[in-house]
Design a protein around this nucleic acid. Sequence first.
DNA 1: GATGAATGAGTTTTCATTCAT
DNA 2: AATGAATGAAAACTCATTCAT
Lengths: 204, 204, 204, 204
Amino acid sequence: MPKIVDHAKQKELVAEAAWRVIRREGLQHASVRNIAEEAKLSVGSMRHYFGSQSELLAYSMQLVSDRCSSRIRRLDLNVPPLEGMKKLIMETLPDTDEKRAESEVWMAFTAQALTDPSLKELAHKVYGHLRYMFEHVITQLSSLGYMSGDLDIEIEIQRLYALVDGLVLHAVLNPESYPASRLEAVIDYHLRSLCPNSPDSLAK
Amino acid sequence: MPKIVDHAKQKELVAEAAWRVIRREGLQHASVRNIAEEAKLSVGSMRHYFGSQSELLAYSMQLVSDRCSSRIRRLDLNVPPLEGMKKLIMETLPDTDEKRAESEVWMAFTAQALTDPSLKELAHKVYGHLRYMFEHVITQLSSLGYMSGDLDIEIEIQRLYALVDGLVLHAVLNPESYPASRLEAVIDYHLRSLCPNSPDSLAK
Amino acid sequence: MPKIVDHAKQKELVAEAAWRVIRREGLQHASVRNIAEEAKLSVGSMRHYFGSQSELLAYSMQLVSDRCSSRIRRLDLNVPPLEGMKKLIMETLPDTDEKRAESEVWMAFTAQALTDPSLKELAHKVYGHLRYMFEHVITQLSSLGYMSGDLDIEIEIQRLYALVDGLVLHAVLNPESYPASRLEAVIDYHLRSLCPNSPDSLAK
Amino acid sequence: MPKIVDHAKQKELVAEAAWRVIRREGLQHASVRNIAEEAKLSVGSMRHYFGSQSELLAYSMQLVSDRCSSRIRRLDLNVPPLEGMKKLIMETLPDTDEKRAESEVWMAFTAQALTDPSLKELAHKVYGHLRYMFEHVITQLSSLGYMSGDLDIEIEIQRLYALVDGLVLHAVLNPESYPASRLEAVIDYHLRSLCPNSPDSLAK
DNA sequence: GATGAATGAGTTTTCATTCAT
DNA sequence: AATGAATGAAAACTCATTCAT
């Protein structure tokens, strides 16, 4: 079914055009017309891929999450546990141009999700997935005995997740103050402070 | 003599109407028309107070920052230092309805600032002020000898600021998971982990 | 395949609707709305033909000039030279309803061009073309030896052009005082006074 | 009654502010607000001088004509007749900054008068006055025997008036091509061609 | 399937005018 | 008398969506 593949590919191309418009002009200018122009398509033919603007935007938001997930899935985790956890975390941070693009777009969608129910659902789903990932990180480190015994697991999860999202926010707003090296340094620092008993060190 | 109206007060009333619209329907529906209706003014008369929509929105964004600043200025800091620092931090977190409202509005504006130069300027200014406040918190705790000696001041500032903004974000997106008590608990926890040598404890 | 519409023809129809509005109500009422209504189109669909009001008005102004040019181009100049020159001149004068319409519209645009840079450019271009035509008329008559030798060519050009534009103005403002016969008489008179040596006479 | 004088003076100041707006931005931007701002008055207080916008604009148009009339009235005509006639004509041409301003404003109003009945009346009245003045010029020169006998008086009047208004138009549109000296040269040239029998010459 | 014409509702902004003080 | 607040209408322009071809 080659047509299907083309169809899916075309949808991604349109969504990426949407990303470019959103980054350049903001979500409020991500009109069907502007996106069609950016994708070099006619307004009419975009309707074959997306039945409405909401559908297009929801797909574009979903694509950000999918791209991040598939990066994480492709990660080689045959490394010492502490470094593996760090790798997971680093995948969510804007330390490359591509990831910076995604973070900017994600942030725009997140703000929109506050008042747009159709986006809100996706925002919550993704929030849940990430929360689950950070839960995994903390429980792993804890069950490996890297963390000191009296730590509060739930708070550590919330602290780590908040730290990461706060860093994403600050890096997006202030990219020049948050180069890849700085983001990595903050994560290394936090993980080290969490894991005084780790036998691995975060070589860098 | 013209009709006497408290110009400044009227501007605040309009800005607060803008907040309500933004919270209810999002920034993209914060049209002059909708805000005028919410403020129970005619569109035309709103122009006496704000010459353009940008001006209105910039003022509304500024007001969020001003409200937070004045709350901080009114704080009674005649308390043990660690508790004082905590009070400063807590003022920025959405632990009341009023502050939740401000946070939601602030988040919408922040996302918009990514692509709107006039808002970007204000976003950066406020970012600088907050960064300075967190710098103050960390250097105070450090110079009081509460923190262990080998901590990296710069990273601690960035970590604290990111943690706080991440918490704001999560609390706004997931208010039911982040009641006031939870926000306070995370902050207490972080401060305690920073200050193993503090003579004060954070009574709760 | 899209609905088939003659794009160029449609633009002319809209521009002619604009002319009618301008003649009836003046340039200041030549709003997009009024022109759309006159053209029996929706405001929105006029945007397919003209991206903005300025574009529409510039096109409408250009059309006046184009119509006059093409009339001149279609002129049969296989006549005695003096009569040929007269025919050129007469094409610019409002001696028919159609030409009166064009002159009225042209005058409205010319006044607007004083303060509207996009129209000013066109006004100057057309001014140049007409000036060139009158230059041609004077130099032709001169090189044929029709004019007396001591005439100042440059001044004669300016005098002829000013006379013609002044007549257009007066005929537009006072049509009942300037019927076709009167306009022709003034031009005949001026040409005769210029060409005492002409072997042709301007039969009338 | 000093108040009355002030009132009249104030009206002139407002009208001159209107002129400045019209010259700078065009008649379509000569709104009550813009004129009030230019005149440094409040919108409300302008209502004490002009009951409506039409009234203000009509007065502003009238003022152009009045200024020109009073300049002509103040003219010293104790000079040879041909020079006197030239002086009359030159008063209507834009050969100084002040007169250029009036001509520009007049042209804007004249175009508007085509479709605005309240201005049309004034335009016609002024047209009549000027026509009368040019009639006077031609009949004077004729009765003095300066002109050759076989001239057509009526056509000469229309020719002179059209020439003058055409020159005004061209000078306003192309000021750099029509400095004072050029305007004067064209008028001198025309008068000389009209008056081959004049004993006076137009010294220059 | 693909295109672009068409539409009507929406946006911000400017405006003349009225009115309370 | 003088001011500026208030209003509702009208302006240009953008938009998502529908539809004929």
